[in-house]
């Protein structure tokens, strides 16, 4: 996997980080420039595409009718799925989602679910019988690092862009009316990933940095600055001091990201 060329590159990355620099000229706490375009897929109820550096992620939202879970009869349902499409990286292979894709989907899911971003009570059509199901499908189109943050931002953007069909209930039957209204949202979680290379913390790791980094931590923040989800990944560890440093770094980064996103 690691050819001679990449090994040389990895050494360069480690050396740069040692000097508090990065190979793409960023400082340790710099986020890459990103652009988001909403409504790129007309057939979907909502969609958004993000470019984060060269990382490209498309999220499409489909809204369908379905039955609620028995333990939450008055709430609509949200599911998140992620596909690491083989054209996005030579390391992705066709087939059902593997561990990496499942973890990605579940981190994004947790940020949205635990912040209670979607007002699921408003997605109830007939209590216990019929609700709206919001399908969030993450499609990674190019992998250049930090798929977690890119997917999380694109997913929330796509939800903000989602339209729900207007309807009426006639004799317990749903009748679709003309026009659309926006998906009811209560929060807009911002997820920030911090990587750790040789005991230095870096914001928004790029693909090559991900190859060197021994662990990462992703933290999601609500509108009012509370933490709503967290996940450590990678085969390394954080000392308790590094955890609180990463926490502070993620917190300040999330604030500036939120301003840039205008959420």
């Amino acid at each position: 996997m690691s050819s001679l060329l990449t090994r040389v590159k990895l050494k360069q990355i480690e050396k740069a980080i040692e000097e508090e620099k990065r190979i793409d000229q960023r400082t340790l706490s710099d986020y890459r420039i990103f652009t988001i375009e909403q409504g790129v897929i007309q057939k979907a109820e909502g969609s958004a595409k993000i470019f984060l550096g060269k990382t490209e992620v498309l999220v499409g939202i489909k809204v369908e009718k379905g039955t609620p879970y028995p333990d939450t009869p008055n709430n609509g349902v949200m599911t998140v799925n992620a596909e690491l499409v083989p054209l996005a990286s030579s390391k992705f292979e066709p087939g059902p989602p593997g561990e990496q894709a499942i973890e990605l989907a579940r981190i994004v899911d947790r940020g949205i679910r635990e912040s209670e971003a979607i007002d699921t009570e408003k997605l109830c059509i007939v209590p216990g019988k019929q609700v709206f199901i919001v399908f969030v499908d993450i499609y990674v189109l190019n992998h250049d690092g930090n798929l977690i943050d890119a997917s999380a931002m694109a997913a929330v953007s796509a939800l903000m862009n989602t339209k729900m069909p207007n309807y009426e209930i006639v004799d317990d039957e749903i009748v679709i009316k003309q026009g659309y209204s926006p998906l009811p949202l209560k929060d807009h979680p911002v997820t920030v990933t911090i990587g750790k290379i040789n005991d230095k913390l870096i914001v928004d790791p790029g693909l090559e940095e991900e190859e060197v980094m021994d662990s990462r931590i992703s933290i999601a923040f609500t509108d009012d600055g509370r933490i709503c989800a967290m996940q450590k990944g990678g085969s390394g560890y954080f000392t308790t001091k590094q955890v609180s440093e990463a926490m502070k770094l993620a917190q300040s980064t999330a604030e500036t990201q939120r301003k840039k996103l205008k959420w």
Partner: peptide
């Protein structure tokens, strides 16, 4: 080693 090797969270907490 005072090392945290797994850390997850769900729910809402202030820092």
């Amino acid at each position: 080693l005072n090392a945290v090797t797994l850390l997850q969270m769900d729910g809402k907490l202030s820092p």
